[in-house]
């Protein structure tokens, strides 16, 4: 065991993936984008341990995940809420945690939402492919060994870099998202939007949909009132994050990070990126509504949210060291 070994998995969750921000320019090569599906939570976890957002952390589906601490380190756990126990003592999420060698960390099952994130000071080491370590199980690429495998009991995680220990940080309350079981997401009208009939567009905007069991990192299938599909056959084309496909059965599918780079179903628009992250936290059975907007509304929202986020980040750093 190397001196970089930091955590050993003693109990694996349903699916725990080594992940990061995903690949740049992957579609050009016919590959999935990958990366943490709730990138918002993931980025905060990275900042809490003083890591650049491009370093690797864990995406924990549901939990519980149990780990032995092999060397002193700093970690942060964000994303869906749930217990965090360090040698049996409850710990806060959305804050820097300092761990000592020999301790035992249990990240419990989520109370709401689906995915929890863990970042470590120094970042995790993985097999770098296409400029990152993101695990894409569907492609059998990325992760610890480059074969797309989820982490298993007994796996030892090592640090990518020598960590710098930082003063304790805590994400401002206002910046911590809620994990509701009902959501209204914004959809930027686009792709084949103009081909859908006005009644199909109304149906889409007014109906309530339910997240089905067939929801994963590739896409979220919804069930609800069918939307009339405008074309039966079209040439496959590139599809971006959040594209809302309407197959022949009229049940929408929102495409997420591990989607294929091209697809041949008509699309009514794209779920706004931040809303994709929230949608990725919805468990089967959760309710969803769509509200359409223009690309200009979406662009405006992007810049407002970014300014807000920078303000929160500055606020977090200005209160560093306070508990």
């Amino acid at each position: 065991m190397t001196d970089k070994a930091v955590l050993r998995i003693t109990q694996a969750s349903m699916q725990t993936l080594l992940t990061d921000r995903g690949r740049q320019g992957a579609g050009r090569q016919g590959l999935s984008q990958g990366g943490a599906v709730d990138g918002y939570s993931f980025d905060w976890a990275s900042h809490l341990v003083g890591q650049a957002a491009d370093s690797a952390g864990l995406e924990i589906l549901i939990g519980p995940l149990a780990l032995d601490v092999l060397q002193d380190c700093q970690v942060a756990i964000t994303g869906a809420p749930g217990d965090i126990l360090l040698d049996g003592v409850a710990q806060p999420s959305w804050q820097t945690l300092s761990l000592k060698a020999g301790q035992h960390l249990v990240i419990g099952q989520c109370d709401a939402g689906l995915r929890r994130y863990l970042a470590v000071g120094g970042g995790f080491q993985g097999c770098i492919q296409f400029g990152c370590v993101t695990t894409v199980p569907r492609e059998h690429l990325g992760g610890l060994c480059g074969d797309g495998a989820a982490l298993q009991q007994g796996d030892v995680l090592t640090l990518a870099r020598q960590p710098t220990f930082i003063p304790h940080l805590s994400v401002p309350e206002a910046a911590r998202p809620d994990f509701p079981d009902q959501l209204c997401v914004q959809v930027v009208m686009g792709y084949q939007y103009d081909l859908f009939s006005s009644s199909a567009v109304r149906q889409f905007g007014l109906s309530q949909y339910t997240v089905s069991q067939r929801a994963d990192r590739m896409g979220v299938r919804l069930t609800g009132p069918a939307i009339e599909s405008p074309v039966t056959q079209m040439a496959s084309e590139g599809i971006g994050l959040g594209a809302v496909q309407i197959p022949a059965d009229g049940q929408p599918i929102v495409m997420l990070n591990d989607r294929q780079s091209i697809g041949g179903y008509p699309k009514i628009g794209s779920v706004y990126p931040r809303d994709c992250q929230r949608l990725a936290q919805l468990a089967p059975g959760a309710r969803l509504r769509f509200s359409t907007c223009s690309v200009f509304d979406a662009d405006n929202r992007f810049h407002l949210e970014r300014a807000q986020w920078q303000h929160w980040l500055a606020q977090m750093i200005s209160t560093a060291g306070e508990k």
Binding site: Q24, G25, A26, G27, R28, A235, S236, E237, G238, I239, G240, S261, I262
Partner: peptide
């Protein structure tokens, strides 16, 4: 430019 995908009759770019 972040990504570009050619497929049949279209060019998608991010």
């Amino acid at each position: 430019l972040q990504d570009s995908v050619v497929s049949y009759r279209s060019l998608y770019l991010q």
